[in-house]
Amino acid sequence: MDEQPKILTIVNEPTVAPVDLLARAQFFAGLTRLQLQRIAAISVIHTYDKDAHIYRTGEIAQHLYVLAQGMVRFAVGLGGRDNPGSDILHRHEVFGWAAMTPSDNIRIANATCLTPCTVLAINGRELIGLMEQDQPMGYQIMKQLVGLITGTFTASVAG
């Protein structure tokens, strides 16, 4: 299991506990504080420089991400290039849902930092395990996941 992050240092919010970041993400709405603490315990903080790739199309997906600080360009990859209908992700948004598809967890998009970024990286395999142990939590997350995946493909098709 990953070591639990204690505090994120964020511009204009010098101390934010990972559980509080999760609570601010709409994706995790409806979960209890205890459920959020369990998710925080399988998460780590990653920081990236401007123009860094958080992940690229074709990579194995290990983490689901919550953007704590910065802006990320999220673009579904088509034939080795980005779809022109990319999204700009902001603080508290969740991305990287391929980590939640264990039978085929290959990235279908590129996530690139437009600014320096801080993310909370949640271990996808361990999150699935938590969801199996706590089925009400699993149901809440799956409802959100369906919306996230549908939104990704709707934006991609709309271009």
Rank of each mutant, 00 (worst) to 15 (best):
P18C: 06
A25I: 07
V19A: 15
R38F: 11
A17T: 08
T9L: 04
T32M: 02
L36H: 07
T9I: 06
E13M: 13
L34F: 08
V16H: 03
R24T: 07
I39V: 13
V16G: 06
R33M: 10
F27M: 11
A23S: 13
L36N: 10
A40Y: 12
L21H: 06
D20Y: 01
F27D: 10
A17E: 15
A23C: 07
L8V: 00
I39L: 09
F27Y: 12
A25D: 05
D20V: 03
V19R: 10
L31E: 02
F27I: 11
V11Y: 02
Q37G: 14
Q26F: 06
R38E: 14
A23Y: 13
T9W: 02
L31W: 01
R38I: 03
F28K: 03
V11K: 13
L21I: 05
T9G: 09
A25W: 02
Q35T: 10
A40S: 15
T32I: 03
P14G: 04
F27E: 09
E13V: 09
N12A: 08
F28I: 06
A25G: 08
E13Q: 14
L31I: 01
A40L: 13
F28E: 04
Q26C: 05
E13S: 12
N12S: 10
Q37C: 11
D20H: 04
F28H: 05
L22D: 12
P18D: 02
N12E: 09
P14L: 06
R24W: 04
R38N: 14
L8Y: 00
V19I: 11
Q35A: 15
F28R: 05
R38T: 08
D20F: 00
L21V: 05
T9M: 04
Q26W: 02
V19D: 12
V16A: 06
A23L: 12
A40H: 09
L8T: 00
I10L: 15
V16S: 06
L8W: 00
T15G: 04
F28Y: 10
V19Y: 02
T9V: 09
L21W: 02
Q37W: 03
V16Q: 10
V11Q: 12
Q35Y: 07
N12L: 05
N12Q: 11
L31P: 00
A23V: 07
R33Q: 14
D20N: 09
I39T: 06
I39K: 07
F28D: 06
T32F: 01
R33N: 11
L34P: 04
Q37K: 12
V11G: 08
R33T: 13
T9R: 13
L36E: 11
Q35L: 07
R24G: 05
P18L: 03
L36G: 09
T32S: 15
